[in-house]
């Protein structure tokens, strides 16, 4: 019965490629995909439709492992693409060497969104661990944004307290005691904070914070930029096994290359991501991105394998903290 219901791949008259992406990039890729389709049509005469799927970064990686016919993945954190490579072999293990800048067409960071006028006077990561501050952040187990928030807080405390891991762990534990709601994705947390009115501060993707100001109005929220934050790396990769089977390698590779083009770089900046080619972006877009001292978590904790294992795998730091903190 299953087979008679099954649709086989490649049944579409026009070429379709599927970009499996993480939560906050919905608005971004809507514009990028349309731009790419236009450019590809002009260049080759072929009509290509880029489909997008969005969700928590980990959940999205899981669908690729389980066989969603993704041509490219654009996820929130390198360890999720590592997991696809490791568990499904659909992506080669050395994927970070295949594209410029380690597969990062743009980067981002974590800033704070607070209620208008910043009633709790949140200025820096310290303030998030204060007893009377409620912090809204997604579950780091399932959300890339959640993991960047976690790592950013850890890195901040690590640098502050003379590179003491124990103290950094304790600080993060203190901070997560202030978290009343853990949504599964960054978007869920934003809705909880902005629409439902819960919590005092939402540490979130820089692009997401700007988007909230645009969607909900600048009169309701303020962005607070901490003096230091994390260098967040949302990478992209080709899903080799799928494009070869679907015969879409040419289009999918071109799509990834397009992400590094001036046109795409300008779109990234417009949506408040940090383009790697700053010269391609409009100056007024760049001016919106504040100067922050950014640290790289790999410099503090080592390889992504180690980072994932130590913090987020079963029995990792997050599990230990939530067990202790309940």
């Amino acid at each position: 019965m299953a087979t008679c219901l099954a649709s086989t791949g490649g049944a579409h008259a026009q070429t379709e490629i599927l970009n499996v992406s993480y939560d906050p990039t919905r608005e971004l890729y809507r514009e990028i995909n349309a731009a790419f389709a236009e450019e590809w049509k002009a260049k080759t005469g072929e009509t290509v439709t880029v489909r997008a799927a969005h969700g928590g970064s980990g959940a999205q990686a899981r669908t690729v492992i389980d066989g969603i016919p993704a041509d490219v993945v654009t996820l929130g954190i390198p360890s999720d693409i590592d997991a696809i490579a490791k568990l499904s072999k659909k992506i080669p293990g050395d994927w970070r060497t295949k594209l410029p800048n380690e597969g990062l067409p743009y980067t981002s960071t974590v800033v704070f969104l607070v209620r208008k006028g910043n009633p709790k006077a949140v200025k820096d990561w310290d303030d998030l661990a204060k007893p009377d501050v409620k912090v809204i952040t997604p579950n780091p187990k399932t959300s890339a944004g959640g993991r960047w928030n976690f790592l950013a807080a850890w890195g901040y405390a690590y640098e502050r307290d003379g590179k003491d891991k124990e103290k950094a762990n304790a600080f993060v534990g203190q901070l997560y005691k202030n978290v009343p709601v853990l949504d599964t994705g960054a978007r869920g947390s934003t809705v909880t904070f902005a629409q439902r009115g819960l919590g005092d501060v939402l540490p979130t993707w820089e692009n997401e914070a700007f988007l909230v100001l645009e969607e909900f109005g600048k009169d309701k929220f303020d962005i607070v930029v901490p003096p230091t934050s994390i260098y967040a790396e949302p990478p992209v990769a080709l899903v080799d096994a799928n494009v070869d089977k679907k015969g879409t390698r040419k289009q999918a590779e071109a799509y990834l290359q397009f992400l590094y083009s001036d046109r795409a770089q300008a779109i990234f900046a417009k949506h408040h991501y940090r383009p790697i080619k700053r010269e391609a972006a409009k100056p007024e877009d760049l001016a919106q991105l504040p100067e922050i001292k950014l640290f790289k978590i790999e410099d503090l904790q080592g390889s992504w394998d180690d980072i994932q294992k130590a913090n987020f795998d079963n029995g990792g730091l997050f599990d230990q903290l939530s067990r202790a903190g309940r």
Binding site: A2, T3, L5, A6, S7, T8, G9, G10, T63, I65, D66, G67, I68, P69, L87, S88, K245
Partner: peptide
């Protein structure tokens, strides 16, 4: 049952049949 790493996964992948993440 039907995921890439599931019971029929290898068979489905080989015959290019998409069950989950599709209408079926």
């Amino acid at each position: 049952v039907f995921g890439s790493r599931g019971l029929f996964g290898p068979f489905l992948v080989e015959h290019d049949i998409q069950i989950i993440f599709a209408v079926p």
